[in-house]
Amino acid sequence: MTQFRLIASTAFGLEAVAKRELQSLGVSEIQAYNGYVEFVGDELTIARANLWLRTVNRVFIKVGQFTARTFEELFEQTKALPWPELLSKDANFPVNGRSLKSQLSSVPACQSIVKKAVVESLKERYRMEKFPETGPRYTIEVSLLKDEAVITLDTSGEGLHKRGYRKLTASAPIRETLAAALVLLSRWGPHRPFADPLCGSGTIAIEAAMIGSNLAPGHRRTFASEHFIWMDKGSWNEARQEVEDTRQRSASLEILAGDIDKEVLSLAEYHARQAGVGPQVQIVHQDVAKFQPDDPYGCIITNPPYGERLWEEREVRKLYQTMGKSFARLDTWSKFVITSYPDFERVYGDKADKKRKLYNGRIQTNFYQYLGPLPPRKPHD
């Protein structure tokens, strides 16, 4: 199979998590950069990455990289790339773009130049003057940073955070990719109880259940590269069969999703069913002040309101104080809270063991980590 240079884009702060995910898939030659991870793989790797990566935004083929300070340089070097090997003659190939700190600062102009260069390349191969663009979609992206151009082909289609289960949304939802990253950063394992007592529409608990069941996040959706004319259908069939073979349908999980708002709990229940983990997630109508699980050595991960609006701040401070008092009773549990609220630790009443800067969309947050003791080892028989 052909080997490709591939890129998995991530939110800032999640590059190391994405790298660990790729390593778990057996991928080699991985390099992490700001906002993305670069690696090498074949068609089966493309399929596996799209199906299994929980924390990345999209998977791209890196078609070329070169210095471009003029439109002529951008045109000629883009044209020289192997487009006839990647695009069918009926391909629908829109071009997206971005530019930062580059002489070619007009994004629309760069997009137009790349489009023209690809057309000229295809003309030479197919001996056609016009291309109908009625076939599969091949989205090209030109990214310019400090006059260095990177040309990529999107293999994912819709962003990978769109798992296919969250068809209804509550206010201020957390992206599925970030929710999964919080679970992976916590190092939670399915042998321990898990809870999100401020669950909203249930995304964090659902992602935990998918991780605990070894269920691929992309199992319910399709991807752009499934329709690429050169893509080996056997690779996608093999990758999807692996999803079915490795899923732990009978996994015994203790996952609780609670909230004081009955309306959002109905969304959480619906989303859990849509994700295929309805039986694994217990939905509970409960005030966080009364959260008192029986099991020891559990893990809480939650995304409470941030108080971004001035009129919400008093309510948010009160909520964080309540959380601090409630969670303090759980001295054998690990607690993880993501929020942008700058005075969180003082209001909550405890200094975190660790904190990590993450971005929830465009909002800079901290992921506060309160690490409880590990469960005692079970004696060997």
Rank of each mutant, 00 (worst) to 15 (best):
L14Q: 04
A195W: 00
F327I: 10
R314K: 15
G164V: 07
P132Y: 10
R48F: 08
G276F: 04
D343F: 12
W311N: 13
T78L: 11
E238Y: 10
L145T: 12
G200P: 00
A91N: 02
S225M: 14
G189I: 15
L319M: 13
A16W: 10
S213K: 07
P173L: 12
A49I: 04
H227Q: 11
L198H: 00
A16L: 15
F12C: 07
S102F: 09
I283L: 11
N360Y: 03
D196H: 08
G276I: 05
P342G: 02
P304Y: 04
D350L: 14
E29V: 04
I301C: 06
L330H: 01
D381E: 13
L144F: 04
E308A: 14
M323F: 06
N214D: 05
V264M: 05
F291H: 01
G64H: 10
R166P: 00
E133C: 14
P375D: 04
D353S: 10
Q241F: 02
T332P: 03
S28H: 12
K325I: 07
T322I: 12
K354G: 05
T70G: 00
R247W: 07
Q23E: 15
A195F: 07
E238T: 15
P342H: 00
C299V: 11
E43S: 08
S99K: 09
G157N: 04
R54K: 02
W311Q: 14
A209H: 00
H380E: 11
T2L: 14
G298R: 05
V114T: 14
A272I: 07
T10F: 01
I255R: 07
T339P: 02
G157K: 08
Q292R: 15
E85N: 09
H271P: 00
E207D: 02
Y348D: 03
M1G: 06
E141R: 12
P376D: 03
V316C: 06
Y138L: 09
Q31T: 10
F12A: 11
F4T: 02
F194I: 06
S143V: 09
K318Q: 05
E226H: 10
R192A: 06
Y348K: 12
L81Q: 04
P342Y: 02
V118T: 00
I140W: 10
E129Q: 06
P132I: 08
N366R: 14
T78C: 11
Q321V: 10
E176S: 13
S186D: 01
K354H: 14
V281C: 04
D245N: 12
E73K: 09
N96M: 14
L100V: 15
R125Y: 12
V347C: 08
K123Q: 05
E43W: 06
L81H: 05
H285F: 11
S102I: 06
A328K: 14
I338N: 01
G157E: 03
G135R: 07
S201L: 08
R127N: 01
Q241K: 11
E141M: 13
D381C: 11
K89F: 11
R20Y: 06
R54Q: 02
L87E: 00
H161D: 05
P132E: 04
R125V: 13
